[in-house]
Nucleic acid binder design. Structure first.
Lengths: 325, 325
DNA sequence: GTGAAAGCGCTAACAG
DNA sequence: CTGTTAGCGCTTTCAC
């Protein structure tokens, strides 16, 4: 395998001249430049990127930490990241953690060993302080609202988004409202819960734990919820569902079981994935692809424009009225 | 940032001893081993992985080439790859190509520049010969049936799978059968088309181009198909749909437009994603996660067990009867 | 058991 | 404009 020394020798120049040609730097006589290119093409030479990485101390690879790639919520964020990354010549390394703390830690370690230049955390279980302890090793962007001063953050105001959904349901006459969330301990869920409780309190409605469903992420969870609700003696009349996938599961399996949306149960969902449109589900659109884009940009600006001071950015949502309420 | 020399100096040993300790090699006196570990912990030292990569000429990173990550078909394959990769300490680098030939070529180039040790191609537009020309740079696994001798291949027998669906529809009394495929030029589509035509010929049914729909990949394509079929003067009575997502789009939008499955239109779909179960769609299950696993294993065996001779493996499917026929 | 030293292939500071 | 050279940090062979 040819290397830069070989090229230099054959072209009758020094390695640094070859390096200049390779990297498009100025100050190389046209004649030599051509000679170098000739040899390069002749030998079908390519740089060894690992040598570049070692020498530069950078890889142009960004890590992406997520529980699973096989879910529209995350794959839409990833699509946003990916789009921007490609534009700027960065690559993406994925860490599918399944919320396993050890795997999450491994992803963070990749920052330390310089496998990646920066890390985007779509969702996590590991403690915030642990994450923050890696900030010396590179920029870390969190896709949630955090006050941790060392972390970049791009997020949706989930309190506001949930409040928006609650208001809508209340205005439509509902007061027996339940919810479906994913992991109850996540920051996003905490904010949503707060909005939920505040809204119920404002109309003096009681908080019913049996109407609060957790660990809802997939369509199959919607199946579970539909049958659970049917078995309830006192049922909620409306549900705020934190994921279109889950909402779709409730609508479809509800139909199979005899629980009809919106007559038996009104639903306001989140995400605005294609499935919500196909099922005419009223949903609150989350700018997931945009989150990905912004997250990448923060890392890009860190390196390219020296914006090393962690920033936080909040993204807007909008309610799309359809036929599930 | 501490390096191996620093550790050696502080522990009073040579760098090679440190390297032996770091990599768990034998023949190091227990006393020195401990001394080295002490310094390592004290300095919170970690290897620079790029130096390892350069030195070893390997990265333990496998590339994954796919058009988009935001589709269940691909994210299920990826999940399979990812699961195996994690088990063996490999990382994954994603190349989202959107079927752009230049991006596909870039992914292949990553093999040449030694960014990745091997490449798994989930789907591609670029010519097979072009792909094959990179086999000297590392193992390449294709997720389709190919006779190209230099490529590994793990695939579903799409001819057989489509024939299975056709037989089923024919046995159920259908002879006016159409299909939905994604890119008509792909090898997978070619096989499916062949099975389709052979089945129609076997019952002496004419081949109707207006019942053959292409570029169907997402739920929104199902919407398009549903409305197109409604506008047809002579309609097919059944459809073989190469993706659950598209089938779901047809069922759901069909309902909205007044085209009812299975009464107006029978559907046999492919994949067996959760949505097909929720919609009671008869589908042919494809072992997508298994494809990913096998693909990774081939690359792993290449390096670990010296299985450098390209192999091909065919994976089975099964039909799941539900209520869409 | 242990260490010296020669790479791995490229970058970039510096001298000219 | 151009070349020399000292890294980047780790692995691995070989001699002792």
């Amino acid at each position: 395998m040819a290397n830069i020394r070989e090229i230099a020798k054959r072209a009758g120049v020094s390695v640094s001249t070859v390096s200049r040609v390779l990297n498009g730097y100025p100050y190389v006589k046209e004649e030599k430049r051509r000679a170098v290119w000739d040899v390069i093409h002749q030998l079908n030479y390519k740089k060894n990127i690992n040598a570049v990485h070692l020498s530069k101390g950078r890889t142009n690879i960004i890590g992406v930490m997520l529980p699973t790639i096989n879910h529209p919520y995350f794959s839409m964020i990833v699509e946003g990241i990916s789009e921007e990354a490609l534009r700027y010549g960065y690559h993406l390394l994925f860490f599918q953690t399944n919320y396993d703390i050890h795997k999450e830690q491994e992803a963070l370690e990749m920052l330390r060993v310089k496998q990646i230049d920066g890390l985007i955390i779509c969702s996590h279980t590991i403690r915030l302080e642990t994450i923050a302890s890696y900030t010396n090793d590179g920029p870390i962007v969190l896709c949630e609202d955090t006050s941790e001063p060392h972390l970049f953050s791009v997020y949706i105001d989930h309190y506001h988004a949930f409040a928006l959904g609650m208001d809508y349901l209340i205005k439509k006459g509902h007061c027996k409202i339940g919810y479906c969330l994913s992991r109850p301990t996540s920051i996003n869920s905490q904010k949503r819960k707060a909005a939920y409780k505040d809204a119920l309190q404002s109309i003096h409605a009681p908080i019913r734990p049996d109407w609060m469903f957790h660990h809802c992420l997939h369509m199959s969870d919607g199946k579970r919820i539909a049958s659970t609700i049917l078995s309830l003696e006192e049922k909620p009349t409306a549900l705020l569902v934190a994921s279109d996938q889950v909402a779709a599961g409730i609508v479809l399996w509800g139909k199979t079981y005899g629980l009809h949306v919106p007559n038996d149960l009104a639903i306001v969902s989140f995400d605005n994935h294609p499935i919500s449109e196909a099922l005419h589900i009223t949903t609150i659109e989350l700018p997931l692809s945009l989150i990905g884009k912004k997250a990448f940009q923060m890392i890009y600006d860190y390196f390219t424009n020296d914006k090393t001071q962690p920033t936080k950015e909040k993204l807007p949502v909008r309610l799309i009225e359809r036929a599930s309420v």
